[in-house]
Computed example of a mutant assay.
Amino acid sequence: MPLIHETDLWSRARGALAPADSPDERTPPDGPSAEDTSGATPTSISRSVPLHDVLRARRSVRRFLEDPVPDTDLATLLDLATSTDRQMWPHGTAATTPQAWLVSGVTGTSGARLRQYISRRPTAGQATAGEFTDHGDCPEPALLAARYAPAPVTILICAKITDTDTDTDTDTDDTGSDYGRALLRASAFGYNAWLSAVAEGLGGSVYGRSSPEVTRIVRRATGTSVRHLFTLLLGHPADIPSGGPGCE
């Protein structure tokens, strides 16, 4: 079978996802080569990160700089995660579609904001695109910081789960098919977003356990009946030696 150079993985992956969203994206995006790092900055997005570098950088980071993560970067990685979800679940029910709720600002401070990422169905010739809807100050940011870690961005991945026997929303049934589907989709969505973030030079950590307390926070702040399933922390890693405290 033909070999693909590791520096071409980004464009090839985008091309593989393009049929669902944008045929025009089969053309590799312009960007510096892996050898050309002049002008690169910690916040710039690289489209040619070698695979082994991404895998080596994929470690849990729980200490972050307070530098914010630009919305353009967040939209890029969430758009990719959404596009991949649609590829994996072309006939998935709308109820279990992952919802990304972002706590922006250093979690644990009074200035943290709760926002929702809302994806838009692409039209012909256009890529998946989304936008952020602000829901005001995040309630109980200290609880999130204590449960996870203070981070510039905490992404709470949720979904609506329905009891198929009664057709009612539930937050206690962990055995139904809707719950299993929602958990699998939320986990895949979170990991896809995390790997995209690592490829862009960000750090993060994932938490695969759902939380009733976080579910109540999201429901109380937004008036929705979604259930929290997965958490992703993102930010620029603090300058900590490899293998030192704060990373695994």
Rank of each mutant, 00 (worst) to 15 (best):
I157H: 00
L195D: 08
P152R: 15
A197I: 01
D30N: 10
H52V: 05
H236F: 03
A142Q: 15
D79K: 00
Q116Y: 02
W10I: 05
L229S: 02
V106R: 04
R14Y: 06
S38T: 06
P29L: 05
D171R: 12
P68V: 14
G246L: 07
L156E: 06
A186K: 02
A142F: 10
V61R: 08
V226H: 08
H228V: 01
A197C: 06
L9F: 15
D53M: 04
P42L: 09
R26W: 07
E25V: 08
A94D: 08
R58Q: 09
T133N: 04
T37V: 15
R147K: 14
D167H: 15
I45L: 15
Y117Q: 02
T107Y: 01
T162K: 14
K160T: 10
L143K: 15
E131F: 09
R120F: 10
D169F: 15
A81S: 05
D171V: 14
T72Q: 01
G180Q: 15
I240L: 06
G246Q: 08
G111L: 07
T97A: 04
E131A: 11
D174M: 15
D30E: 14
T231F: 00
G203S: 10
A81V: 02
L183Y: 10
A18K: 08
A159C: 12
Y207S: 10
P19H: 11
D178G: 14
T96M: 03
A188F: 09
R209I: 12
A146F: 13
P139Y: 12
A100D: 00
A20L: 15
L183A: 14
T231Y: 01
T76Y: 08
A159Y: 08
I118H: 08
L17N: 12
R227F: 04
T43D: 11
V54W: 04
